[in-house]
Write a protein that binds this DNA or RNA. Structure first.
Lengths: 346, 346
DNA sequence: AGCAGCCTTCAAAGCGCTTTGAATGGCGTG
DNA sequence: CACGCCATTCAAAGCGCTTTGAAGGCTGCT
């Protein structure tokens, strides 16, 4: 069933039917009623492609999910982000066009999406410090919102980000204030903006409390459970192991906890751990009582906001939209005061 | 830059340019060369919407990601599945249109996708025993491949599935053969086909070895880390706790392990645990040595296959494509012989 | 009665592509 | 030299929708 058929059946012109369905004022109320009844009866929905072609709006947003370098893993964070964004799109009539690509192909994907006019805007994930995609998208004039920020670029594009630096500074200071003097950072890949800022916050936190960062206590890699486990083992095997840890994802934290358990160390008593927590649905950090003391900011909420900002931007370009979220520091059972002698064993 | 501009610049008709770019034979080789050079120079890509309208093929596949009932969580399994499918789509020129919806809206989403002609086919996730979507999609004539199977429906549609029943039967028998007599099943929601079959396999495995299933040892819920943890605690607090466990996802397994650790029990020694393992990228079950003894089948591979099957189906409907994958049983460190007296403490 | 002016409806053009059917030119052949 | 044939190229229609500009039918006014 297409518009022509519907118009024919109703004995009306396509113009009138189209207008009736799209809520234009110049249609008699009785006619509109008749039309929308018929449309519902036949489950008529305008052909997206034709509509997009005629209006020049695709009513679709492009999301590009990056595969981790080499390993080609896909971070579960993106699933929750998209779920959040989707709520916004749904109520605004937008669809999601998804592309999963290796980092080196991303620029081409955006270029293609722009040239093929298949989306009205895109979300850029995981920007690097000097991300080339930003200049590229500006050049081709495709509206975009960055999830995160590019460190070294002028601040004139739209983004939504968490204040990662402040969060990690706060977390670090919290640990120092508990008496911990040797604190380790188990970070994501530091080529990415968020990890870079977390490291900066970590260092700032130590310095603010008069401590000197120790490079041996700052690790960085893809944020898997296995990495958390092996990082923790490595750190615990040091001659003078840290007594507190701050890590970049709940998934890492679970791996770290596994290593700690194996070593017979109790979180919150023998050692302390703070994790960044994206509030992923399948990794809830405790429903009632928090397992981990955490710096929490929901990535799902971020997705919802990013989508809102992008739709705004599409309707009224030129003014960049920017939004900064603060992570909450929620105290859970994984942190406690340091032992007076600075060791980890009871 | 569109086709008309390009044709104008080249002094050719749109027809010729279009044919040159689409590899039709009736174009002189020199002309084709000239055209494709110009196209590359201007980064010309045909407008997807226009092309789709003209050809009647959207060159897009719909994926619907279901949100868990009530909680609206999104299972990380889908991220990996899509990553797999995406590999296939990429090399065949298909795009992914994503929709994230609550279960009760799914039927409407498919109906819309069909009516709006925005996709050439869809993937159906997480079918229930008597899934209404299958009949619906047949009725509207939209090609589809189901990831999983609907238990109670005739076997005349396309699907890719893992032999869940056999896998769980095998795993259960493996545990019994190690001497375990009280074995618990920590399953996903049993309204879903896969969980249902796993339960059947579990029961079959027990019966094949002469054991009687105990309803108190069969739990079922959304497959989160937190559920694994609380399920394990519940089971361990029984008067006569199980000595072996088989669970439906690596994420559950991590939660179970946490509870075991807290209770001072060692996997593979005091208690045994087998997990189903979708081989999710961020939850690798050990790179070298397996943490968990596992029934493994890569959901990413499943995604790749599903996509291939769907593309086949689109090109040649009518013949349903069906594919069954077997899970490997890989022995890791989480299983060991039962203690002679049937207890869990050393 | 005649006319302006509104309300409602319509025919047709256009979005950017593919594809049909026709036209052009160069070539070999009788 | 005329003819037909093949290799190229083209103009135009059509995909299903929106939207412009025009027209038809009423009303109310003079």
């Amino acid at each position: 069933m297409n518009l022509r058929d519907l118009a024919l059946e109703l004995g009306l012109s396509q113009t009138t039917v189209s207008r009736a369905l799209n809520g234009y004022p110049e249609v008699a109320e009785a006619t509109r009623q008749r039309v929308s009844d018929a449309a519902r009866r036949h489950n008529y929905k305008p052909n997206t492609r034709a509509k997009a072609l005629a209006t020049g709006r695709a009513m679709a947003i492009g999301h590009v999910i990056p595969l981790a370098a080499q390993t080609e893993m896909v971070n579960p964070v993106f699933a929750d982000f998209i779920a959040g964004a989707s709520e916004t799109y749904m109520s605004n009539g937008y669809d999601i066009v998804l592309s999963v690509t290796k980092n080196e192909d991303e620029a081409r994907v955006y270029l293609d999406m722009a040239a093929k006019r298949m989306v009205d805007g895109v979300i850029v994930q995981s920007p690097t410090a000097d991300d080339p995609r930003i200049a590229l998208l500006k050049k081709v004039g495709l509206p975009f919102v960055v999830h995160g920020r590019a460190a070294d670029l002028p601040d004139d594009y739209s983004y939504i980000d968490v204040n990662n630096k402040r969060a990690f500074q706060r977390g670090t200071e919290f640990l120092v204030d508990l008496g911990h003097a040797r604190i380790a950072l188990i970070n994501g890949r530091e080529s990415l903006g968020f990890a870079n800022r977390r490291k900066a916050g970590f260092i700032a936190g130590l310095k603010a409390r008069g401590l000197t960062p120790d490079p041996a206590l700052m690790l960085s890699d893809e944020m898997t459970e296995g990495y958390g486990y092996s990082a923790m083992r490595t750190l615990l095997s040091l001659a003078h192991p840290p007594t507190a840890f701050i890590c970049s994802s709940a998934i890492i934290a679970f791996g770290m906890r596994r290593a700690a358990d194996e070593a017979g160390l109790r979180l919150g008593q023998d050692i302390s751990l703070i994790t960044y927590d994206d509030d992923l649905s399948y990794f809830k950090n405790g429903d009632d009582e928090m397992i981990f003391t955490a710096l929490r900011s929901s990535v799902r909420t971020a997705g919802r906001c990013a989508a809102e900002m992008l739709i705004d931007l599409i309707n009224e370009p030129d003014i960049p939209r920017q939004r900064m979220m603060e992570a909450e520091l929620i105290v859970g059972r994984s942190t406690g005061p340091a032992r007076p002698n600075g060791t980890i064993y009871r």
